[in-house]
């Protein structure tokens, strides 16, 4: 790997670690100067871009602190008193959640705590026994699995979902490919969805949820099957969508991102309290 390629990879990795653009530029410039002065190959001097970016991110204390000062907008999702039983077993008991524009809410809980059920209730795919959901604006939903058509190509998915959102075929394709690129994926032109790997199909699923820039995004563990780089890209995209004013609800069981979300809805605790 040439030094230039190494520095480009470092820039991408720092971005994935939520290091702000100013600091990234500074670190890359410093690193480039060191490499120039020492004449050492970058890999020998600093290790892989991934390792070095992780070390930098650790030393500067994680994500860009300027994000903390972000203003939040009006309410976009309002869930009140949602209760759901399957047969006689309570799954959700009086669950409330309010998410504003520019906020990320994480829904956590043990297996069977009702995380996916909660999201399906929010999306109107499951009827609750009690409670109401109000969505301000348009809704995008990324299910844990499914959500695609086995025999269609990615571009055909973009066109189909885009037509529902009022996008022309070229616009839908352009937008879908742009979102895919942000997840480091170039959709193949003539591969049916059933022939995509599990992680790639989830990328398609996620891109479809985002198509048409909905105001509220419901994401049900959308990163299943993602490799590490794509997982980081996914969270980077979540922060970007949040900064653009989207209200996002993410179902997750991975707790290492919880300190970066705006609120956490723990359904395990809600169930235990009931």
């Amino acid at each position: 790997m040439t030094d230039d390629a190494w520095l480009a990879a470092l820039t991408g990795e720092l971005r994935r670690h939520q290091v702000g653009p100013d600091l990234t530029a500074h670190v890359v410039a410093e690193t480039a100067a060191h490499l120039r002065d020492s004449g050492e190959p970058a890999v020998r001097a600093f290790g892989t871009p991934r390792e070095y970016a992780a070390a930098v991110a650790d030393s500067v204390g994680g994500p860009d602190p300027s994000r903390a000062a972000r203003p939040v907008g009006p309410v976009r999702l309002e869930v009140r008193g949602v209760t759901k039983r399957y047969r006689r077993r309570p799954v959700l008991t009086g669950v409330d959640l309010t998410v504003r524009a520019g906020q990320v809410a994480a829904v956590v809980g043990a297996n069977g705590a009702g995380k996916s059920t909660f999201l399906r209730v929010c999306a109107g795919l499951t009827r609750p026994d009690r409670g109401t959901v109000r969505v301000y604006g348009r809704l995008g939903y990324c299910p844990q699995d499914g959500g695609t058509s086995e025999f269609l190509f990615p571009d055909e998915h973009f066109a189909l979902v885009g037509a529902g959102r009022g996008l022309s075929r070229p616009d839908a394709r352009r937008e879908g490919r742009a979102y895919a690129a942000a997840l480091d994926w170039t959709p193949p032109r003539s591969t049916q969805a059933r022939h995509l790997s599990g992680g790639t199909r989830q990328k398609l699923n996620l891109v479809l949820a985002r198509l048409g820039a909905p105001d509220v995004l419901l994401l049900d563990e959308p990163y299943q099957g993602f490799d590490r780089g794509t997982y980081l890209d996914f969270w980077h995209e979540v922060w970007r969508w949040r900064d653009a004013g989207t209200a996002i609800v993410v179902v997750t069981h991975l707790l290492n991102q919880l300190d970066r979300v705006d609120q956490v809805l723990d359904l395990t605790r809600a169930e235990a309290a009931a």
Binding site: G140, Y141, G147, S149, F151, V161, R165, L211, G212
Partner: peptide, 15 residues
């Protein structure tokens, strides 16, 4: 049956 997987998404997308 094949449409079952994608129809909920299409409904939420304006169909």
């Amino acid at each position: 049956s094949a449409g079952r997987a994608i129809e909920p998404r299409l409904r939420l997308s304006g169909y």
